[in-house]
Amino acid sequence: MPFIDVNGEQLEVDEDGFLQDPEKWNEDVAKYLAKTEQVEELTEEHWKMVNYLHDYFKKYQIAPMVRKLCKDNGMDLKKVYELFPTGPAKGACKIAGLPKPTGCV
C-alpha cells in the first residue's frame, strides 16, 4: 500500500489516494487531499460539505446518497461540482477522509 506524508506523519492510502483509516483524518490531511482533487483552497462552503460528509461517515460507515448530501447542504449537484471538480464521490468524499466507494455504485 502507498503512503502520503502530511506534516511528517505517514498515512496509508489506497492506490488511488483514498485515506485508509478515517480516524487519521484532520484539517491538514483534508488540505493535502484537496490539492490532489483540483481544490486549491478549502473555503467555508467546502468545509461545510467536508465536515458533513465526515460526520455522516462516522455515524453510518458509508457516504450519504448524492441527493441527500445536496439537500442537507442546500446545494444542487452543479454547485457540488463547482466546489469539487472531480465530483461528490471521488472529490468531496476523498477530501473528507472517506474510503473509496465500493459495490455497484
Partner: peptide, 27 residues
C-alpha cells in the same frame, strides 16, 4: 471490498442495516 464486505457488513456498498434505514427513509 465486494463479497467479503457484503458477508461481514451486509452489503458490498458498505451499507449496514442501520445505514439502510436512513437511506430508505430518505428515499
Amino acid at each position: 471490498k465486494g463479497s467479503r464486505l457484503q458477508l461481514t457488513v451486509g452489503s458490498s456498498t458498505g451499507l449496514s442495516p442501520m445505514a439502510l434505514k436512513d437511506y430508505l427513509e430518505f428515499i
